[in-house]
Every structure is written in C-alpha cells, then in structure tokens.
Design a protein around this nucleic acid. Structure first.
Lengths: 192, 192
DNA sequence: CGTCTATTTGAATGTACTCAAAAGCGGTGG
DNA sequence: CCACCGCTTTTGAGTACATTCAAATAGACG
C-alpha cells in the first residue's frame, strides 16, 4: 500500500527491496476528513506528508484574520510546514484538507534517522526540494511581473487539475487577488 | 583561500581534511567586475556560485523589457539560476554583479561527481536548499498579505546589510513596487 | 564643474480592493 | 418534488493603493 510513494521515489533514486522495507517501518498511513487540519499555525509541524488521495491547502492567517493560500497539494505531492518541520518551531501556516484525504506520513525524528540509515534519501529530498524551490522562485517572479489576469491564466495552465477541484475563492487567494476581482477577470476572459 | 566556504559548510556537515582537498579540486575562483553577468537569461547556467566578496542581483526581464529582481546575493550566499542549473535548460534569469565580486564556482558536472564521491554534500545542499525554500515561501506569503510599506519595512529588517549596499530602485523591484512609489513610501515613513 | 545615474515630486490614471447585496448552486429534509 | 439552507460566485458603486509619465532635484565620479 506504499506503492504510490515507492513509484514516486523511483523517479529520483533506486531503492532495493530491503531499503523499501526499512523505509516502510517509518511510514504511517492516516486518513483525514474534509475540513480537518494536518498542521495548525502555532503548533510544531511533526511530519512530512505524502498525499495518496485527496487535496489540501496550506494557508497563512494574517493579522487582519485574512487567509492567504501559499500552496495546494494533491495526489503525489508532499505537504508540510517545512519551516516549522526543519527547525521544530511553531508553524506559520495551516495545512487543511479540502477533501477527504489519505496521507503517508514520516515523523520528524524518524526522518532524521532515515537520513542516517538510508543516505540515498538525502539525495531524494535534495532533488525534490530543489524543484520546489525553483517553482517557488517562478511564482515570485510571476507575482512581480504579471497582472491578475495573466496570473490566473498561468495558474490554469500549470495546475488544470487543481483548478477543477478547488473553489474559485481559494485560487484567487493563491494568485494574490480578491475573490470578487477574480470573478471580474473571468468575466472579461469569457467575453473575449 | 577556500576557508570562507569551508567555514560555511562546517555549519552543516563535517568534512575531513582529505574531503576538503577532494572538494577543493573542483572549486574555481573567479573575479567579476561590477556590471558583469555571471548568468544570462537564455544561456544555460553552468555553475553553482558561492560569494566570497561583492554583491549580485538575480533578475528577470519580462516581455515589456522590465526588470524584476528575484534575489540578491552577498558574502557567504549562494547564487545561480537553479532551475537552469538542475535541468541544464536555458536560464529564466540574469545574475549580474552590483559590485566587483569574487566567487567560488562549482561546475554542474563536477557537482554531480562530487555528490557521488562525497555523499555528505547531498546532505549539505539539501539543508541549505530547504532553508532557501522556506524563505522563498515566506516571501510569497508576505507579498500576498502585506502592503508596500510593510514589505519595505520587512525588507529593511531582514536584510539591513543589503539595504545599505544596493540602489533603492532595485529594492523597489525586489519588493514588487515602482521606484517612484518606494520614494513616496519612504517619505511617509520619514514624516511619522 | 559637467555628466551620468539615482531619487524625488506631482498630476493624471488604472488596477485591484472594500462593502453590500443579489444570484446561483448543491444538498437535505419535509 | 419542492423549499430552504449554507456556501460560492457575481454584480456594482465607491475608494484606495500603486502606476505611469514627465520633469525637477540630488549625488557620485571623473
């Protein structure tokens, strides 16, 4: 039942059967219902989570109580408040399920042990975090240089699967505009 | 002369003298004058660069020919177009020196070999990229939730050294506003 | 000094936001 | 099957934050 994760890992490194078993010992499956929180702002993030099924949002609650979506996660994505996880300090973000969701989780301490027992995992996580960082930089550049309309089109192009699964007001938050304005933008696009 | 880099690495992993020598074989020192490009948009980024002295900006040129600063780098920081480097594809960004600059560079191929010869380096780069990713996410969140004035104060707080070294219009670009508006914001702040 | 670059100022404009209300839509229960 | 409820999306008026463009001023450097 860890196959989806092993398949995913196989894109980056090769694991022997023994290594897979070793890793499996530290993997925990957990089911969440729509609306449940995997991480709560202020708590310490204890796991790295791989999504088997479902969808989640990572968001920040600002001083005015407004929600800002910084990430989505669906099947075969990782999610966590990485800042909280790596420094074991209080989380800046909430991670909440948008659908019923099934995760494979690795606890912080177990991950540290796994790095020692299976140094290959350092390579695996290095590579996927490099990719995440690159996407993150691209998002910053696009937030700086594109208009709301362009950012929306960009989002649709890059994450068509997500666009169909999450409510529009969360997409608005993700691309950095209000839900009302996204509605206006969509109207403009429709009449072109 | 590689000491600053070894000191930096020592914050994350321990290297023996032999390992340092092995690494040193792949390190290249290079000096650039103010204004020179280390990476040019469209070229393939060939090195990871560690800054010994000087300062650099990483920026993207958009369709309208406008510059958008996505990163700065000063002493003890790394710089590159990581997206281009890891996929050896054309760079989205330019990396240009803001001052006369001295770098230690590791070529892409050498880095791949080093990962094999010194697996510890996987750990090292995993850790520093994790941190870079976390900063990047924070910047996205702050771009989404803060006003121009708040972002400017935030920048000053987090990067006081940079604020004093780079022209104001580049800071404006970094925080996502025009140079004129930053000037206005600074005026408002001064009269408070 | 004179030139080049960087910063400031101001007026007109625009993109996106706020607030309020209406409309749409999906599910649930009577 | 329809009525109602909660949640999401739309619409519109008024506003604000930030931009554009143009010109003036200030700084840095030879």
């Amino acid at each position: 039942m860890n196959e989806p994760l092993f398949d995913y890992i196989a894109n980056y490194i090769e694991l022997t059967e023994e290594e897979k078993e070793l890793l499996s010992l530290k993997l925990h499956h957990r089911k969440y219902l729509k609306g449940q929180y995997v991480v709560q702002q202020g708590d310490i993030c204890k796991h790295e989570s791989f999504v088997l099924s479902g969808a989640l949002k990572t968001f920040h609650l600002d001083n005015q109580g407004q929600e800002h979506v910084v990430a989505f996660a669906i099947e075969n994505w990782w999610t966590a408040d990485l800042g909280s996880l790596i420094s074991q300090s209080p989380a800046d973000y909430n991670v909440q399920c948008l659908e019923n969701t099934e995760l494979i989780q690795i606890a912080y301490n177990d991950l540290q042990e796994l790095y020692k027992a299976l140094p290959k995992l350092e390579r695996f996580f290095r590579i996927i975090i490099e990719k995440a960082f690159v996407s993150s930089q691209k998002r910053i550049a696009s937030n700086l240089s594109l208009t709301a309309k362009e950012r929306y089109l960009n989002f649709k192009k890059h994450y068509p699967q997500i666009e169909q699964r999450v409510p529009q007001y969360l997409i608005a938050s993700y691309i950095g505009i209000t839900k009302e304005f996204l509605s206006t933008v969509r109207n403009q696009l429709a009449s072109e």
